[in-house]
């Protein structure tokens, strides 16, 4: 198996809180890998560690065999040109309109003619259904639309891998269906490696090849969709079914409730 992204014994801390404790996982090339886990476990943090935006306390991340946190800035930037990332918030450049946002990486990194850039951008916007919104400013977009523009921007450079942070949140059922197919299609037609962070269990499971469930700094469960669906691990079952009671705590770590309220 050809491993595209390898995370080895990663330990990362935010203040006193350990977000990851000796986390290891592998993401095979050309597959759609889902990363699931409760809110606040550090899924976004994991993507940022993989992209080299955060530095781990221990352990390393290898992308294409290169240790992301050991690379010089120049080599890291070269690597990032082959990485796409869809931010949870969209993170569009607010002083550029939709068209220019999607054209931005092309203009910065290639010498393509304006003509060709226009055609490429319109194709990417068409893929996310927003060709008609090309003249709008980011402030005029809804949250779901902004995220679709960000998706078009993330695929503008035709990267080898894309990391999607919550791509389906805030989309209506129809758009969600289109996006789910798009993620899968990009993956098969371009041979992309896709890392999908999402809470939309059914949608993700419908396109993923492999699933990691992380919680409390560790991989709680992993396997193909079949394995995960049929898992009898109470933790995984609770997460897939969304039951409020079970081994997954709904609450952020806190003092005893009664004590906090001063009742005892």
């Amino acid at each position: 198996m050809d491993v595209h992204i390898r995370v080895e014994n990663l330990t990362f801390r935010r203040g006193a809180r350990k977000i990851f404790d000796n986390l290891s996982l592998e993401i095979p090339r050309g597959q759609v890998v889902a990363i699931m886990g409760p809110s606040g476990t550090g899924k976004t943090t994991l993507l940022k560690l993989i992209a080299g935006q955060l530095t781990p306390e221990k352990g390393r991340v290898l992308v294409d065999g290169e240790d992301v946190h050991r690379l010089s800035r120049r080599r890291l930037f070269a690597l990032r040109q082959r990485m796409g990332m869809l931010f949870q918030s969209g993170a569009l450049l607010t002083d550029l309109n939709v068209f220019d946002n999607v054209a931005f990486p092309l203009r910065e990194h290639t010498n393509l003619s304006e003509n060709l850039i226009e055609r490429l951008v319109l194709m990417k916007l068409q893929a996310v259904g927003l060709r008609g919104a090309r003249h709008m400013m980011p402030s005029a977009l809804s949250g779901g639309m902004a995220r679709r523009v960000a998706l078009a921007r993330a695929i503008a450079m035709d990267p080898d891998m894309i990391m999607y942070d919550e791509p389906f949140v805030g989309q209506d059922p129809i758009t969600m269906g289109v996006l789910v197919t798009l993620v899968r299609k990009l993956n098969t037609s371009l041979g992309l490696t896709s890392v999908v962070v999402s809470h939309d269990v059914q949608e993700v499971l419908s396109i993923a090849d492999y699933v990691y469930v992380i919680s409390q700094g560790q991989v709680m469960a992993q396997g193909t969709v079949e394995v995960i669906r049929n898992s009898d691990d109470p933790y995984v079952r609770q997460f897939l079914q969304g039951a409020p009671d079970g081994p997954v705590p709904f609450h952020f770590p806190a003092e005893d409730y009664k004590k906090d309220l001063g009742l005892c």
């Binding site: 992209a51 800035r73 931010f87 993170a91």
Partner: peptide
């Protein structure tokens, strides 16, 4: 400050723009 809080600076870094 707003560019930072809306992750625009992070996004630039991710697009390999310093």
């Amino acid at each position: 400050g707003l560019m930072r809080s809306t992750e625009q600076l992070s996004a630039l870094e991710m697009m390999a723009v310093d």
